[in-house]
């Protein structure tokens, strides 16, 4: 059953593809790990985490874009997610990423986020992109800055409360 029109993107080490049922388990594990998943709202119950997964699939169907599953080419296993997120109530389309615990420290998030950003500008035709980061998530802030994004403002996210909005360089700069 494929309801998502997610394209299949590649980088040197990664495949980015639409969400599939087998991704639900590793993602649920991540979402229930509150220390790591605060930037995604943080969930306490399997049912809520499952609903987030279903929400992402619906997001693809309703918006035409969403979170890709990041797969390692060599291992063929899901290593995280990265994509463009813009559910109802969001300030504007966001470039998001997360790498599951055992895959951290290998530059996977950076490699995936760069590819997704190019896709957002080239294929979706977006003119600007933000990344919304919860205060204190120093890893994500460091990556946003390495990607060339800069802090713009702090706003109230309906789900996560106080949230930092970083803005990425635009299509001209990214696509050269």
């Amino acid at each position: 059953m494929s309801l998502t029109q997610a394209p299949y993107l590649e980088t040197e080490r990664l495949i980015l593809r639409g969400p599939e049922p087998e991704d639900a388990e590793p993602l649920t594990e991540f979402l229930l790990d509150r220390a790591r998943s605060d930037g995604f709202g943080g969930y306490d119950h399997r049912g809520d985490a499952w609903r987030w997964f279903a929400l992402n699939v619906g997001h693809w169907h309703l918006r035409g874009y969403g979170y890709f599953t990041i797969e390692l080419k060599e291992a063929g296993t899901p290593a995280g997610i990265s994509g463009i997120w813009n559910p109802e109530g969001w300030p504007e389309p966001e470039l998001g990423w997360v790498v599951f615990a055992e895959f951290e420290g290998k530059g996977i998030a950076s490699e995936a986020a760069r590819r997704v950003r190019r896709y957002a500008y080239e294929d979706l035709g977006l003119k600007t992109l933000t990344s919304n980061i919860v205060p204190g998530n120093t890893r994500s802030i460091a990556l946003a800055e390495r990607l060339g994004a800069s802090y713009e403002r702090t706003y109230q996210n309906y789900n996560m409360g106080e949230d930092l909005l970083y803005r990425h360089p635009g299509p001209d700069e990214v696509l050269g």
Partner: peptide, 20 residues
């Protein structure tokens, strides 16, 4: 509210992929 409604509706749609 519309935000919660959108999330719920979107999850209904997503169930198709998860369950078939």
């Amino acid at each position: 509210e519309p935000v919660a409604a959108w999330h719920k509706f979107s999850a209904y749609v997503g169930q198709w992929v998860l369950r078939g």
